[in-house]
Design a binder for these strands. Sequence first.
RNA 1: GGCCCCAUCGUCUAGCGGCUAGGACACCAGGUUCUCAACCUGGUAACGGGAGUUCGAUUCUCCCUGGGGUCACCA
Length: 557
Amino acid sequence: MTVVTRFAPSPSGNLHVGGARTALYCWAFARGREGRLVLRIEDTDRKRSSEASSLGFMTDLDWLGIDWDEGPVRGDQGGGDHGPYFQSERLAIYAEHLDRLVAEGKAYHAFDTSEELDAKRKAARQAKEAYRYDRAALALTAEEVAAKLAAGEPSVIRFRTPDAAITIVDEVLGEATLPAGEVDDFVIRKADGYPTYHFAVVIDDAMMGVSHVLRAQEHFNNTAKHIILQDALGLPRPVYGHLSLIFNPDGSKMSKRDKDKVLRTAVKERAIEGPPADPLGAPMVEADVWATWLGDKSVQLDLETLERVAAALDVSLPEINVADFRRSGYLPEVLCNFLALNGWSAGDDLEKFDNTFLAERFHLDRVQKTPAKFDRDKLLAFNLDAIQEMSPDVFHDLASAHAAEFRPEFLERLDQGQFRILCDASRERSKTLDEPFLVNGFLVSADDEIEWAVTKPVRKAMFKGEPTGLELLAQIRPVLEAIPSFDAVSIETAITAFVEAHADGNLGRIAQPLRIAVSGGPISPPIYDTLAILGHAAVSSRIDRCLAVLSELAPSK
RNA sequence: GGCCCCAUCGUCUAGCGGCUAGGACACCAGGUUCUCAACCUGGUAACGGGAGUUCGAUUCUCCCUGGGGUCACCA
């Protein structure tokens, strides 16, 4: 039997890491068994699909190296004989099976209004019981049903759940039995004519030949519904494997809502009254939307707005989506490696591997049952290791591509030679592709924009010692000025000679004042590289300003 | 609350009746260093609790505790 797995997200612009891991496991399972991976779009929710019908997540899959055999066409992947791969385009198929179930008495029309249902749910909640549909619609005679339908009364179709226990066999979790009555008569066709997820999934998995369903553990209870539906429809049952969830370090479920949560908390803590204004002075968010969002945890701002507001308020949002990690400068192969490790292990002490290895070794019996907390520190460490293993050329190319997309100012301000020095100086100390830019903003600042905060290390480097750092800085300025060719080697030669003559060979005595003068703070790449990148004019100019500014602030002797 | 599932260092995990309970990240100490990193050496650190089964339980069974999932005309 051919192994067929599927990744079946609802349409969205962004893939979050939990989904990415599911996709990766589905991919690995199929690839390791000469099987196929189907990508199917679950867009049976008209509301959501119309709001965000973006397929942006496919970009994320591409970036991660997760390719699919069947599904929406993108580049040279996708297509296939089992389409269409959008559920919204398969309505006729579902309708046929739906009619059959109703005709066979295995499903029935129900006319309850959502108000009635809500009231009953609320009552169950108060009675501390699990809500189950009460089969009110079954009290209707066939004539009554026909009349209501003829009158055009809105209705749904519910599946008539057999009164029996349901056993789920799961390759990860083992076997579990839900007692009879646990699953109620759930809706399989909504009032708008669309099938519910449960119904569409069962039909599609069967028609697309899916042999193995790997999905998040939150679907575990749904599987019971899918099993009885398969039985009623006479469809084969795929093998199931339910994957544990990915958590935040604090133990909460990692969710796309986390970004809203962080921003909302920041706004409340700082007692910010209204939404920040955009550069033109207009509020970034409508006042009423803002108020609703602030007061209701279940309300989300759209991602773009959320990020704009966060940027305006200088709040850093957690990385949740694959795109977030890309922007932060993680390597796709490292993210895959790390994601794979959250919930699976190779079995020995081997934990650095690529997707090919994963595909070869991935097996369901080594999938962890427990949820994994997402440890960004370890991810960062893996990313650092991968970067350190790169050749300078590769790092330069990747850093350039990253800068082109996320840090264009560096490519604009630095010429190719300067950019190369920055890359070479940064590679072995960078945990991400973004770090060279993130920590070296002073390189692209205007010379007269540098500001000096008199922190402890600055005080020590500039004001202490005999002579003081400031005095040494003043002394070395003409030495640097006199260097004919301002490259790292010449700079080193000049500074070394100066240090021997004036600072007892202690490079730190002069490197720190220089570093502070040109960068505004005590941190920068190696000093010779830093000066070389900045160039002759910028270095002189910055030293002059630094001397002027800090002399004013120096403690009087 | 009902139902279902789960449980090894702080974190990700190895272990599948007998191990000084292993690795990785983090952390701590020392070294190296022009800053920050990185790097090198060493170290601290876990089987949630209680009953069984067994010559012997981290490993098997039960109970407790703790954690999670789910209870939509969302997926």
